[in-house]
Design a protein around this nucleic acid. Sequence first.
DNA 1: CTGAAAGCGCTTACAG
DNA 2: CTGAAAGCGCTTACAG
Lengths: 343, 343
Amino acid sequence: MAEPRRTRIQDVAEQAGVSMMTVSRVLNQDKKVSNKTRQKVMAVVEKLNYRPNVSARRLASSKSFFIGLLYDNPSDSYISQFLLAALKKCRALGYHLVVDEAHLDINKTIESVKQLIDVTQVDGMILLPPMCDNEDVLEVLTKANVPFVRITPDTKLNSSPYICMDDYQAAFDVTERLINQGHKKIAHIIGNNKQGVSRLRYQGYLDALRSNKITTPPEYIEQGSFTYQSGMEAAVKLLALDDKPTAIFAANDDMAAAVISIAQQQGINIPGDLSVVGFDDTQLARSVWPHISTVKQPINEMAELSVSLLASGQYDNMSNLKSLELRHILDFELIERESSSIK
Amino acid sequence: MAEPRRTRIQDVAEQAGVSMMTVSRVLNQDKKVSNKTRQKVMAVVEKLNYRPNVSARRLASSKSFFIGLLYDNPSDSYISQFLLAALKKCRALGYHLVVDEAHLDINKTIESVKQLIDVTQVDGMILLPPMCDNEDVLEVLTKANVPFVRITPDTKLNSSPYICMDDYQAAFDVTERLINQGHKKIAHIIGNNKQGVSRLRYQGYLDALRSNKITTPPEYIEQGSFTYQSGMEAAVKLLALDDKPTAIFAANDDMAAAVISIAQQQGINIPGDLSVVGFDDTQLARSVWPHISTVKQPINEMAELSVSLLASGQYDNMSNLKSLELRHILDFELIERESSSIK
DNA sequence: CTGAAAGCGCTTACAG
DNA sequence: CTGAAAGCGCTTACAG
């Protein structure tokens, strides 16, 4: 096969009647190019469908065009979805994703991060919960001057960009919907108390009850940890109460699935006797029966945005950031399925 | 920070007292290097912990050091596990993984594959079921002379390497274990009839019954499709029989989970009244209660091996392969959990 | 079996 | 605002 040679920067330069350098500048968003030249070059780029050779670029520049992703054993569904979305976005922008799992031993995780910085030389890092809130990890990155984006609602670090959804409002809305459907006895299983989202979801639940003037006995609140197991334990307690709740709002889908399982074992009809709602909209929500009503996190959008932000280079100089630019909130969506219904 | 410059091939060459070319040859497994020289070079490589610069390598050679992975909406658990294992192996070998999801429309999938070949210029492809058995996809790859590894037990293509486990034997063993535990009424839910594994697992089940002289009514065999939904439908039928089975072997975990859910809704105790076993050992097997007894597929090993095979270059010249080298069987493992017990 | 030269396709640093 | 030169760290192709 006579393979058609890929177009190079030189081809573009020749057809546009400029030097390779000018083309390079246009492609790298260098401001010091006249608008006229820029348009001329872009036209040829489009015409020839020119894509820079990433390897050459990487070799010549100091940039690695690698973005690191550090995650810590969240649900397979969540990580898989996030990963695929991030991979696609990276590819579109000429970057590559380097994935690493955090270790139980925090020191090993720090080692991994240092390796990503020194050996792989990542241009930026994406931090998923709960690593996104680990001070030690953040310090290592900050010291090495490696930009990072955190997926977290936690605002404790004012100096770094983060992506989140309005967990509080989502929890409020979900709870209020249950109320509007006639439920008054609504229990809540709180998520892992080390993650900021747990607090926010709990608060949204509480405020929705309050603003609808519903009082709830303290036994309706159970502390979970986002695991299926913790959901089972909470469900056993909640369903053993004399005055059983008619609805249970769990802080994630895994715990909601556990509630459904326990209820079914006890012969409790869902949603007839008990409505169950979760949070996240992972695949698990559609892998049990009845399917779980839940809140859809914009996981794909979060993944894409985190890559885009790092690739844009706007956070490369981490010292001069206005706090206004740091927060990126994405929309959520309530998903009604068969696990909840009108009382 | 005074960043210590990375060691280059020249540093190695100097310390070993040879030319850069010789180092390059050693690193690329070129046979034409004397053993003595090779050892001398390797010693220095180890000492300096030298890692070749992938970009330079890619730029200078015609190889892309990209491996493509085509998958078609299998379970999130499965793809996520496979993906992470493949990513790690790629990184270790200096490769990068380019992931693509197959479209419902086969023509679009073919387009994707062509893009991977022409634009990304992958050095090889990994094909997961069921794309691994699609003649059109295989033809495109073969014509473009792009080596590929299929994850499939299907032997219909004698000219390409594939990785598999002994699905037949695993199904046989799982069934026989149920028999040894005292079960005589064992039902089976067959997997998607378009995937070769379904047939093999079904056959293993049948032969285990036969070799133990157990006859089974035809109503004990239900056709599923690997989805949770299909498992529910099969379970409803099986549990409505006058002469109910005491054990159900589902061809994957998703269908087994569905069986458990339906049984629990009907007040059937698991494993007291009914033992349930699945296949794959995906996360779902541990995400429902009781945890599902199952067969552990060596997913990580399959992922690693597929990358290694492609990186080794042994299949680059696809025309001269002995059929003996093509098959790579990995071990499985029976996992006993709470969903099954002695009758 | 080993090596000196040229080049892969970009960008950096220096000019103007 | 634009360009000519040198070089990033490897490998290919040619010698011997």
